[in-house]
């Protein structure tokens, strides 16, 4: 149900310090998301593509994820070209497709995919426990990281538990349809998952207390940033600065 194909690996991207990867992802996403001209996200998209290739994840999987992410973008393409006022490109069926509308939809598509590739190659390649610690290192509250790491830890356990309940329902002849019985069954399934999660959380916390938990996790796997990490982040900062500069030039109509 939930699998992570990107987190494990031996690529140059996986070897980078998670804190640096997270910071780089944040910076590139920010520049791409705030862009107003197509040149800037195009540059980040190129960088994201290079990073994705470097991270060595399967192309088939990347395409499948990209398809899911672009569903919302396709939805936007249905409306934006005809709902944006501007110069008409095509008229028919009582609708007017405008040049500005197509440009806006194109810009959104570029931005969304640029951020998608950065998140996939830089954040998707960090195992969740390391990401939790990287978040704390970058200033997120410790409790937030605790929440993140444990939600992740029990995601799979609870998904399995839900799977068992669904199997049990199916064995008893449950076929989903649009009727009261289906909704009642799903409601009971959800509520049962909640009850079991609640009970499990009590047991787990008691077990943690028994082992002397005081709110801190002593961790053996320490982050150690090397020259390569600094060089990588330097390149990313330079790229982001370049993208901002292009944005500024394009904004003045020089490109």
């Amino acid at each position: 149900m939930i699998d992570e194909h990107f987190a494990g690996g031996t690529s140059p991207i996986h070897a980078l310090d998670p804190r640096y990867r997270l910071a780089a992802c944040l910076l590139l996403s920010l520049v791409a998301a705030l862009a107003r001209t197509p040149q800037t996200p195009l540059l980040i998209l190129g960088a994201g593509l290079v990073l994705t290739v470097l991270s060595g994840v399967s192309a088939k999987l990347v395409l499948r994820r990209a398809a899911a992410v672009n569903l919302f973008i396709i939805f936007l393409w249905l409306f934006l070209p005809v709902s944006t006022p501007g110069m008409p490109l095509w008229q028919g069926l009582g609708l007017t497709v405008t040049r500005e509308g197509v440009a806006l939809a194109g810009l959104v598509t570029l931005k969304a995919n640029a951020v998608f590739l950065c998140v996939l190659s830089l954040m998707g390649t960090i195992p969740a426990p390391a990401l939790g610690r990287a978040l704390t290192a970058l200033g997120a509250p410790a409790k937030f990281s605790f929440l993140f790491v444990f939600t992740y830890r029990y995601l799979h356990v609870i998904a399995e538990e839900y799977g068992r309940l669904v199997t049990a329902a199916r064995l008893r002849g449950f076929v989903p349809a649009t009727d009261g019985r289906t909704y009642r069954t799903y409601a009971a399934l959800v509520a049962m998952v909640l009850v079991r999660s609640y009970d499990r959380s009590q047991r787990v916390y008691q077990a943690m207390l028994l082992r002397g938990f005081t709110g801190v996790f002593p961790c053996l796997d320490r982050f150690a940033a090397g020259r390569r990490d600094v060089l990588f982040l330097g390149c990313v900062v330079a790229l982001a600065a370049g993208a901002v500069w292009i944005e500024w030039l394009a904004g003045r109509g020089n490109v």
Partner: peptide, 13 residues
Amino acid sequence: LMTVAMLSAAFFV
């Protein structure tokens, strides 16, 4: 927090 984490996972599922 533990309960919130577990219920958050349940809602994710």
